[in-house]
Amino acid sequence: MRRWIKVSVAAAVILGVGGYVAAPYVQDWRLARNACDGALPQDAVERLTPADSRLKSEESRQIDGLGSYWCRLTLEGDEVRDKRFVEMEAYTRREDQDREFMALFPQAGFNGQAPLPDGLPGFVGQYGAIQLLLDCPDLGKDSEGRQRKLLVNTRMGRDVNSEVPGAAYRTAVALTNSASERLGCGAKPLEAPKRDVALAGPEEDRKTVPLSEAKDTACGWVTGSGPAESADWRVDVGTNRSAPTGRCDLFYGDGESGEQVSRMVFVSWYGDWSNRLTSLNSQYERLSMTATARCGGEAANYALDTSDDTPGVDKAARQRMFTRFAEDEVSRRGCSGLRFSF
């Protein structure tokens, strides 16, 4: 463990008799303990804190009338580029959640994202923040009869050791559970991933699998869906089946050079917010295939982004693949009323 945690008790004794040398470590311990109203897991704070850095300040704000909660813990130091250690925003109002989703997907919805491990109900957005969305049984339904929800956005600073396995996810889960309690959401507490998984970035080179090996993944529908199952086709699985959005990326590369030649992106969005998103898609001529359904009393939208010259995949094959994708999503999530627009 970091020295500032080990010496916290001893430092308090030393300070009690005038030992001011240990004051910085006591301040770190105090800030870590009090930040976000005590919700931060101390072991995760210790692992996330950059080497030779000190904590600077903490603050939080809760507005019950708006159903929102915000907290932040900052770093100090001339070498620190991003003074933010961690910042969290939580919203229970639908309009706030819709605004956040639209900000995350400003380019027709095909922005980078990464799935969360162990079925956590969320994703890593294009800017690296962890997004978690939970039903709030204690808040009932809104004026349109939709179950009210809690959206929690957790962002780490650029200098934080977010690649340390498990620490970022444990922090996001702890903050989400705390926000749920503070805002009266009543959601069943989330459990942090049992595996120590490093935070996945939406833009990093994640591991892809050959099409022939995708059967047991969340994008298993691609197996036998059309493209030849050769080494030239690979799949990037970007969904965990419980998030409000997900995607399956199919890459076609040159077998000799390894260069990516083409890509097919199959995306799903869940919630009435996605209707606004897909209405913006209509201006993009390349989005010729979309589908809609109803899931949990709200809209679900599906779309395919690809070029017309994907090797070995003509229009009929694209329609067949997109149909399998949407049908698989609807089946897994218990949706109904699937309709296509080709």
Rank of each mutant, 00 (worst) to 15 (best):
F105S: 06
R146A: 13
L139S: 01
Y25A: 12
L277N: 07
L55Q: 05
A90Y: 08
E191V: 13
S282T: 06
L190N: 05
C136P: 03
E256G: 13
P165R: 01
V17C: 08
C248S: 05
F101K: 00
F322C: 09
G157T: 04
F342T: 06
E76G: 09
G119Y: 00
K56H: 07
Y69A: 14
G19K: 01
E329I: 13
I14Y: 08
S212R: 13
G258N: 07
W269E: 08
P227E: 02
L190F: 06
A231H: 03
F110C: 06
R54N: 13
R93K: 12
T176K: 10
A214Q: 02
S180Y: 06
G145S: 11
L287N: 08
Q283M: 12
G119P: 07
E46A: 14
A300S: 15
S268A: 14
P121W: 05
E79Q: 11
C248E: 04
L287T: 05
S8W: 03
G334P: 04
C136M: 11
Q126G: 00
G224S: 09
T74G: 12
F105L: 15
F105M: 14
P244H: 07
Q27N: 08
D309E: 12
N111S: 04
R234P: 08
G220F: 05
Q42L: 15
L75D: 06
P311H: 07
V261M: 13
G19E: 07
M102Q: 10
E259F: 00
T306C: 09
S212N: 03
V9R: 14
G112H: 13
D314Y: 09
A214F: 01
S257C: 02
V237R: 11
M156R: 01
T306E: 10
V160F: 04
E76R: 03
Y20M: 14
